[in-house]
Structure formats: C-alpha cells, structure tokens
Design a protein around this nucleic acid. Sequence first.
RNA 1: GGCCCCAUCGUCUAGUGGCCUAGGACGUCAGGUUUUCAUCCUGAAGAUCUCCGGUUCGAAUCCGGAUGGGGUCACCA
Length: 480
Amino acid sequence: MKTVRTRIAPSPTGIAHVGTAYIALFNYAFAHQHGGKFIIRIEDTDRARFVEGAEQVIYDALKWLGIPHNEGVDVGGPYAPYRQSERLSIYKKYAVELIEKGHAYYCFCTAEELDVMRKEQQKQGKVPMYDGRCRLLDPVVTKKRAEGERHVVRLHMPNEGKTEWEDLIRGKIEFENVLVDDQVLMKSDGFPTYHLAVVVDDHLMEITHVLRGEEWISSTPKHIVLYDMFGWKKPVFGHMPLLRNADHSKLSKRKNDVSLVSYMQKGYVQEALVNFLCLLGWSHPNNEEVFDLQNFLKNFAIERMQKTGPVFDFNKLNWMNGVYIREKLGTAELRGRLEPFFPTDFPRDKFDAILPLIRERLVLLSDIESLTDFFYRDFQLEKSTLQSKKVEDGVVKEQLEKTIESLRNTTEWKYDIVEAAVRVLQEANTWNKGQYFMLLRVAVTGKTATPPLFETIEVLGKDKTLERLTRAQKLFSSQK
RNA sequence: GGCCCCAUCGUCUAGUGGCCUAGGACGUCAGGUUUUCAUCCUGAAGAUCUCCGGUUCGAAUCCGGAUGGGGUCACCA
C-alpha cells in the first residue's frame, strides 16, 4: 500500500484565502488519518498575477491556524523544488514528450485570431472552443517554426469517447471528450499552464489523493487524459464543496472578507476559525459542535463530507469565537492572544482585574479596547446623557452629591463595600434603582452598557471614581 | 447557452426504507436571573424534507423527470 500523500497547490497571487485554509484543513486531516504526508506546492506559473511576498503570507496563515505540512518550499522535502517556477525544464521535457507522441501540438494562433474565432462561434450560438486549426499543420514544419516563432503547446484532446472517474466525494462523473477543449499546456512565455504542471507535479511528487475545490471538476477530464497519455497511474480525485457567499455564489472577496490575515487582525481566535471551518460540509459523528483540531483529526471521515456548498455564516463564526474566548482558552493563553490588541495606553498591570469583567463580553479579541477604554482613558460627558425623563435635575444633582460624600468616606475600596454604601443611599432616599444605578454607570464610564457597576468602580479606583462623579455633579451645579 | 455538480428550518447540519407527527447548533423571538450590557437557564416560532411521477405494505431516504441553485467554458489558478 502506497503512502497517502495529499497536497494543496495555492498560487501566490495576493491574499491567503480562507478557501485555501479550508481545503488545506481537509487535505491535512485526510493525510493524517491515513498516516500520510501533506504537502504544499506553490503554483506560481502565472507571471502576470504573481505577487511578491504572497507565498510567505500563505505559510504564515496556515501556521497561525495550526495546520502543519510535511513538505514544501519552506520546510523542504525529497521532491523539491516545491515551487513550479523552479521546475520549468521538467514541464518542457514532458511537453516535448507529448508532442512527439502526437498527444500535443504547437499552436501559432495569436490572441487576436483566437478572439475573432470565439466571437464568430458565439455569434453562431456555439460554445467557444479552440477549433483545432493548428492541429492540422505538419509536425515537421511546426517543429521548425516553433524554434523561432512565438507559440503555445496545446493538448490534442481525443475527439471521441468519454472520460470518467470515481470521485471520492461525488461518485462517478463522466464527460464526453469532444466537449473538452484543446487546452493550452505550455504558454508562449515558456511557463506551463496549471493543467500540465499539476499533472506532472502530482505524478512526480507521488500525490495519491487530489482533494480540491469543486471548481476543478470540469477540468479534471483534461488531467485524466494527460495521465493516460503519459501512461501514469492516476491519483484518486475528490472534489470538495465550494464555500459560498450569503447569496450562494462562490465565496469571493467582492462580497466577503476572505483574507486569513484579516481574520487574524479582526481578532478571531484561530482555533475557533478552524473549528468553524470543520463544520462546513462536514459534521461530527457525535453531533459535537465545539471541538479541537485533535478531536477533528481523530473523527474525520471523508464519507461524512457533504456535497452542497455551505454558506459562510459569520453569525456562527462569531458565536464560536466567543465560546473559545470565554470557555476554551486558559487565562494565560487568552492574555497572550489579547496582547496584540491592547491599545498603547492599556494598563497591563490591571489586566488581571479587568479580564474577568469583560471576558464574557468579548466576541472578537479586538473588542478589548471598546470594552475597557474608560478604565484608562477619559471621555467627554454631556449633561443630557445623565438626565432622566423620570427624575428632576435637582434629584440627579442630589444623587450625585450624596454618592460622592458617601464614597469619599469609605475606608476600604472594595466592590461590596461600595455597593453596600450605594444601596443604603438608594433605599434611604427611595430613589428609582434603575435610574440611579444607570446615572452612576454613565457618570463613571461614559457608557450605558458596561461590566457590573461596582466591580468596575473597584477596578477604576477611588480617586478616579470620585473625580468622575464630581465632574458629573458639576454639570448640574451650574445654571445651564 | 453547452457541459458538469448539487438540492432537509433564514444559515450550518443529523438522517443512508419503518424509531421522523424530521433531531441538534447558529440566528430570531419570549420569559427567568440581574443595576445596564453580556453570560447563563427555560421556552417558542421556524422545513408540506424543491416539485411531479415511479418502486415498495411503507420514502427525506431508492429510481426517473422537471424546476431551482452553483461551478466551468482564458496563453488565471
């Protein structure tokens, strides 16, 4: 039995896409489950879309997510190089082999010619497809021409018969060969297209299972035909469902945030994101919703893979993130995750006191600032935000004055002592509890939604609390 | 449009012929706890299992068709 080897083949054309992480996760799980290897191969054959640095971002993102690979440009491996731009001579050799066997041919059509051809086909209501005009050229002549003339190499697709395969996820899929285009295999710049490179590399790197997105189904016949032309053993193909936007179209950056870096920057916990991804198209056999990567690895079975493309639901992701923040991460770990999100003026020495007050309120790690800023930052206070429809300004003024006086006399600054003092006042004066407490809350924090009032006051400290209450009180002392 | 894939609550899904008058989770709504928000607890609404035929004693589950959605039709991956 051959060692199972899976791979992802991202192209460094910009951002590290959440879809890449999704496919990587399942490739990793599949390999892991079979005691195999998971490889990352960089498909950088498109010079026009190449983005400097994009490759590193992909490694960093997968590392952040905790999805490790056994072989790749960064970690090396026995099948190097793992970057297609460094394998050009290999593709060229195989392209020549194909031409010599009559399975591929030189094509000298220009972009303009092809454009005219396609427009004509469309006008006639036909499917745009290469008409094979260069296929008719004399091979001896074309070989000569190819030495000096700009050209591509095209696959000579059989024009009869069917190509079929047993898809690991979808079962039998078949295509009529006549409907499959004579795909360009080598571009005029000497780089291979994906279709040639993927087949050559998957074979050379002994990939046994190709788990990729559903978008590749229609080009799979080309790949299979190539394997047969080379006389190579085919890997097992499995086409994963495609992640979708809310409108069910393929997940795109136009309609959604798809950048892993941006998830990191927004304050998503990597374990939560991975957990959420696991649940798209796959379900835990024990009906578990919240589980870690190890649990997933142990319970993963491709048979439980669903065929329908799942909508990427941010509501559920956010919920999941909250679960990890409040229940799954240890305190020390959480602090580490929060660290990058601390504003520069955040009082680190007060962290242990503040965290319990806001932990269950954090949805994103980045919420830390808006949830805690009043502890260490002063704010504008308007008189109107302290007023109440139910209570006269004079009463509000009295409430603040008496509270200040009472709290000034406290000997120990503990939340329960502050609370006792405030409650005594409230009861003695029969003030409306909701109004009175809200008044203090806003005066002290500037917000109507905050952690529990007295704990907040304790952490804030006596001086700061009295200062803010006094400031509020002054708003009611002046005439206007 | 051709070809291909798919089809259970708004969303993620359980379900592989009878245990389904379809279960769970997110979201939503209501109530409880409570000084606010959040957490937590309880409950509710929400799917004629896309539709129509067929097979069967019996179908969400099997078959066929229709419809709908998606993908793909580049010298991009």
